[in-house]
Design a protein around this nucleic acid. Sequence first.
DNA 1: TTTT
DNA 2: TTTT
Lengths: 155, 155, 155, 155
Amino acid sequence: MMNRVVLVGRLTKDPELRYTPNGVAVANFTVACNRPFSNQQGNREADFINCVVWRRTAENLANFMKKGSLIGVDGRIQTRSFDNQEGRRIFMTEVLAENIQFLESKGSSQGGSGSSGFQTRQNPPQEQNRPNDYEDNPFENSGEPIDLSDDDLPF
Amino acid sequence: MMNRVVLVGRLTKDPELRYTPNGVAVANFTVACNRPFSNQQGNREADFINCVVWRRTAENLANFMKKGSLIGVDGRIQTRSFDNQEGRRIFMTEVLAENIQFLESKGSSQGGSGSSGFQTRQNPPQEQNRPNDYEDNPFENSGEPIDLSDDDLPF
Amino acid sequence: MMNRVVLVGRLTKDPELRYTPNGVAVANFTVACNRPFSNQQGNREADFINCVVWRRTAENLANFMKKGSLIGVDGRIQTRSFDNQEGRRIFMTEVLAENIQFLESKGSSQGGSGSSGFQTRQNPPQEQNRPNDYEDNPFENSGEPIDLSDDDLPF
Amino acid sequence: MMNRVVLVGRLTKDPELRYTPNGVAVANFTVACNRPFSNQQGNREADFINCVVWRRTAENLANFMKKGSLIGVDGRIQTRSFDNQEGRRIFMTEVLAENIQFLESKGSSQGGSGSSGFQTRQNPPQEQNRPNDYEDNPFENSGEPIDLSDDDLPF
DNA sequence: TTTT
DNA sequence: TTTT
């Protein structure tokens, strides 16, 4: 059953990179999309769309994009529910990013955490030792938007 | 800024048609989209995606589709927040349907409210008296999926 | 770089299933999409969009869908060029279908070749002998739209 | 019937702005989208997708974007046929852009015609004299991607 | 609170 | 809790 989303917008804050207990990288981020029309008061509002991405693309996102960066997202809408601390069922809607396009390098926008170093896995638990080809800067030689495809999402 | 969604799925219940204080029709509905993959347990889960649609398309949806009906949705993701009864800020994500395609007539699926009559505006407040060309059954002559475009959304 | 297409429409003729020299199934088909607006003369025109799909989904399409069948297509636009018999360079634009949703069973629409049997590979050249789980009718138990995902496209 | 396309890519040349006999602006352009995978030879190919856009957005595109500019396109696939000079029927597939997002200012990419001045309508035939709010540079105050919505396409 |  |  068709379920397709495409977004282009800016990160509202630095991506949050975490690892699952078995060492799979996952990043949460929010994309601000300005609406194509104005409201009654003549202002342009924005939508703040929660997204999640897995593995390599998650790490790339955390390493190369930050608050304010312009990105493109291609993915699907996912919903899930969980019980919060007060025992109430909470429903969540977010975009599962299957592919992300970086439309700006980390340097070209201002703001963000300013943490200059790469985020890397500290003690990624039970992570197997495969060579990683992703710890070099894809913007180095190009100054180009890049499209880091996600070859092996965990689902 | 790009923000585009396309869904094909089934209504989880009959659409809920309401009218704003100044007589604009709005319908809320949820589309169930089965995921294209199975989870760890080998089951296929579904996403339940909240949607909203305005005006004519809202009324058409309520009149011709019901719980279980297969529809296509073309629209955008919108987010909004409001304070609930406990004074807590609640964030909502939903799809604003700009165009809906009916992929099944009301008769062809089973289930739903079974209410056979059309839902119409009872006392639509301060609604001006324009001719409505939408109170005949678009499935009558065709047995066809129909695509009811929305010429005049209120935004 | 983002490139995303979603279509819902009807097959203009039975899908054409062929095999590459090394036995990979490929199907060409055209989707008719009625435009959401009328032209100057008040008629609704249609777009006839050439598509291609590979492997399992190609075989499923040929087996379960025919002229007139309603389908959903999720994919990307591809262009290619070739020199025709007169030595002229021809440019082609088509949709590479990555995922197809069958919105009708073969039986439920009329028209088409009427060939009732499945199309299968006659002497698929140098095709390795892997078990195929796709030669049963996905509509048998369900009367349902099905979504046959494409796990292993050749690119 | 659903028909939705989203592209992000670069202009292969300066947009070609023309006017219909009754003064409606129309621009043709081609978007290069690099494929997310490599071919047998390990090279990444690109798709060159022909697009068309009308009116204000056409003029904005011609004025602010040039060869090499990065843009986002939201639209639909259209097909048409015409008879060429040899009396042969030619089929064309192109994307009708309904909305375009400029992801780079004219200055920020190199290449292109280098024509610095705005393209404007020379003697736009029988064009009525409405005020135009689009002849100032949308990048002036912002250095921002802009999203010029198309309020009044001629169909 | 979820559809077939 | 929001980006430019």
